[in-house]
Nucleic acid binder design. Structure first.
Lengths: 234, 234, 234, 234
DNA sequence: TATGAATGAGGTTTCATTCAT
DNA sequence: GATGAATGAAACCTCATTCAT
């Protein structure tokens, strides 16, 4: 006995490219997702209540359950909304690289990643930050279902990118690669999930838009250097 | 069944095999802190309930409020327990470096930090992980009181270390230094706050103790290289 | 994934193999009543949600309110659909008896009732079970409006049957009659409202149709004997 | 990781024999159970809200979860509170019968059951009614966990009684016995679960206590006769 | 006639905290 | 110090219903 009819949980809404915050004419589920992204990014998932979300989105409290089934459903929906475009953009970028004559170098790969991240960021002000927080959460032992959700939906596509990365770091042992990969991920995840706070610290007075491009431009050479540093004891 | 005097609170001390690490003779507040560290590290602060903590510590639910005033008080207490030794160890390390003839290099400074982190880790299995999570939290806009707490108690001592670090990266602009510092912090915070999960991923079968030393040994050259990479566009 | 027009309400019609009985061409309100009967019978009235009903009937959630005004309206509708034929059949049966030369005996009356119940059962698989549950509910102090509804629409016709019954149990005191009547009603209501479960218990392996006739055939002599047992202390 | 400490859900409270309704000095969990019994009996389980229960018991809303873990826990507790004494009393009665010279007859067995039911009734005004409603519920396909709960805790003891009953109805086929048993159960369950309503109908003006003894005294000969009626077609 | 979206009321449960002992 | 019970606030979620289309 199905508990339907309700909208198909998980991948519900069509987002307009509109970036101005909380557009009052946008439709309900879009408004919810945008409000949720902002609050999730600023406070975390558990810390954010459905009341806060629905209040900010200016919709009825029950609307979240109507559109997304549950808070977890909303989180998954939010995740899809940034992970899907991210993977799409990475795939695209890799394809472009593949058509070039020479094999892609480490810098090329990071550039592909950077472009993909920028594209995610341009969907909504907080898409990127919230995505990074999701990836962070996924490493907690108590959140294995989130991990599973991500692995199942995006595992294969992520593996492809990692494969290319590995090709460019052949000089590292398998184990060294594993750890450096996570050092790098730490940089990216920490910086981008806190980017709003960091930008505010960096430019206390200016009230300009966050430019992820600038941050990533700074980050790429640092990560390149880190990945290519001589292995300890060699 | 009919005339039971009262619910059997005695049955509380049935602990899963998970907490063999919980020394039963330690005094109440120590037990609480240790249980809290483990749970905070694995689940996060908000996600961890007082009931879970007191159950794992095998103490009365009200004991936390009695000893620490509130959940926030416990968190601060946990924070102090690792931040104080960390700063002490850094101070010590810097002092030793200062007595040497030459000015300390970047590698020396990172070594000092590494030694300090190892010392924190050796207090309790989860001291380090939970400390890292605290630092992560402190960047959230909604947790400014935590930030304030840390800044007030440890701000000055941290500043000293950062000052030394800056001395060794004079070639970077102020702004570049700011960002690279946070890239580095991201690596450290992410890696160490998830170190249990990462070690489990790295060595799925082995059941040996986590060796932060090993991790840090891998990390230092990577960070060094990152900090010293040529600035973009120069 | 990105630009979905709207949640796919079309995916609502995925029905479990459970509802093969749900004729897809029947009109909306018939489908609703049939689905409601099944669910009411299996779960009870309060336990059954409109969503379950509309999902099983494969109609829109709002259709129930459109066709029946409210959940209570639907329940009353369901009640009528079995109480009316029941009373009709009893009336018919009594008329036939009346045309016979001799006055009707207790067994005759019970046979009339049995035939009427069988007729109700043959309307829909769950008509009878749900009717019995309704009668059960009607005795609860908190459901006096249901009681009132039944009394007003069918009270007189039921009274006629009870009158005949009383004629055949003259040897019992008024009060004894009252109680025996309810003992009997208990047997009927309990057995028939749980008949699906009971048949499943009785014939765990066979997957044949429920034959109320068989059950009633077993019940009649038992009830006869019960009603005619010598009064306690006489 | 245990979710303790909380009282051991399910069999929590010590009941005083006090039958006056809602004694204000009784302890919290007793008050809850008594209020729950009354409301469950009058309205059903799903229909009764925790707010109603705690309001009637004049305790905090959260007290139910504190003492019983959940609404289902409360229901199970209520069940135990009447099923345990019922089975105890039946065991006792059977033992007494066993010590007699001759084998126990059908009437003896029913008398044992009646005495046991009376004893349950004397615990609390609504213990018996609510027990009967529980047994009724247990036959619904959607309540198999309740069924399981009862079977696991009391299945064996009930089976003993049924065994004796079967010994006294050897002339019936297995299948006939099954059905007659449920006819009888229907009488008992329906009558006793609605006994308050029925007594009110029987004696509209009198406001005296319900005498289950009287009802059961009327019921025994009826059931005896029903069980011993000649099998259809023999 | 029918539907998809939305909503207000109210459901159970969880939580940190408090208090008398 | 320590404990068992109790509590108010608020969490997430479900429900029957309504309404514009």
């Amino acid at each position: 006995m199905a508990e339907m009819p309700r909208p198909e949980w998980g991948s519900t809404n069509n987002m307009s490219a509109d970036n101005t915050f909380m557009c009052p004419t946008a439709d309900t589920s879009t408004r919810i997702v945008q409000a949720a992204e902002k609050l999730f990014a600023e406070q975390g998932f558990k810390e954010t209540t459905m009341r806060q979300i629905t209040a900010l989105a200016d919709v009825n409290l029950a609307a979240v359950n109507y559109h997304f089934g549950s808070k977890k459903g909303l989180i998954h929906s939010v995740a899809e909304q940034s992970l899907s475009p991210l993977c799409d953009a990475i795939d695209e970028g890799l394809e472009k690289l593949g058509s070039k004559s020479s094999a892609p170098g480490l810098k090329d790969l990071l550039q592909v990643l950077a472009v993909a991240l920028v594209r995610v960021h341009h969907r909504t002000d907080y898409s990127l930050a919230v995505l990074m927080r999701l990836l962070d959460q996924a490493y907690r032992p108590s959140q294995q279902d989130l991990q599973e959700f991500i692995r199942q939906k995006y595992g294969k596509r992520i593996a492809v990118f990692l494969h290319y990365l590995r090709e460019n770091t052949r000089e590292l042992s398998e184990r060294e690669f594993f750890w450096r990969l996570h050092f790098l991920m730490g940089s990216v995840i920490f910086t981008l999930s806190n980017m709003h706070a960091l930008v505010a610290l960096d430019q206390p007075n200016e009230r300009e838009e966050i430019e992820v491009e600038t941050i990533l431009l700074r980050m790429i050479p640092v990560i390149c250097a880190g990945m290519q540093a001589p292995e300890q004891g060699h």
